[in-house]
Amino acid sequence: MPSTVFDIPTWVNPKVAPDRHVQIAKALYSVPGDLIGQRLSARVDAQTVKLYFRGELIKVHPRIAAGRRQTDPADLPSELTAYAMRDLNTLQRRAESHGTHIGIYTAAVLEHPLPWTKMRQVYRLLGLVRRHGADIVDDACRRSLDAEVVDVGVIDRMLARGATGQQLTLLPPPAPSRFVRSATDFAVRRPS
Rank of each mutant, 00 (worst) to 15 (best):
L125T: 06
A183I: 11
D151P: 01
P191D: 14
S144R: 07
A140Y: 01
L171E: 14
A160H: 12
P73F: 07
Q121H: 15
A84F: 15
G162S: 09
K26V: 05
N89W: 04
P73I: 08
V109H: 05
L76R: 10
G37M: 01
P172M: 09
G103C: 04
A27M: 12
G55P: 05
V154N: 06
T71V: 14
R131V: 00
V49A: 00
F179S: 12
A187C: 04
R142G: 00
T48K: 08
I104F: 01
T106W: 03
E79V: 10
S192A: 13
A84H: 14
S97T: 01
D151F: 04
N13H: 14
D146A: 05
F6Q: 10
L170Q: 12
D45E: 02
G133M: 00
P32N: 10
T164K: 08
G162K: 08
A65I: 05
H132E: 04
S78I: 09
E79P: 03
R63Q: 11
R161W: 03
L126Y: 05
M1S: 14
V16I: 11
A183C: 07
V150I: 14
A108P: 01
L51C: 03
L128P: 03
S97H: 12
P9A: 06
G33Q: 03
Q70T: 01
G33W: 06
W11N: 08
A42L: 07
R93A: 07
D151E: 10
R86M: 10
L91N: 05
G37Y: 02
G99K: 06
V154L: 09
P113N: 09
S97D: 05
L57M: 11
N89E: 10
R86G: 05
P14W: 08
I155R: 05
P113I: 09
Y83S: 13
T117M: 13
V22F: 13
P176S: 09
D75Q: 08
V31I: 13
D185S: 15
R130P: 00
A65P: 01
A65V: 07
D34Y: 10
T100S: 02
R39H: 07
L76A: 05
V188A: 15
V31A: 03
R142D: 00
A46E: 10
G99F: 02
L76S: 04
G133K: 03
T71P: 02
H112L: 12
C141D: 00
R143G: 02
A65C: 03
D138Q: 03
G127S: 11
Q166C: 01
K15H: 08
Q23C: 15
A134S: 14
W116K: 15
V16F: 11
V150H: 04
W116F: 15
I58M: 02
L51A: 01
P2M: 07
A74E: 12
R86F: 07
A82G: 08
L51N: 01
P172R: 12
I8N: 04
F186G: 10
D19H: 14
D19W: 13
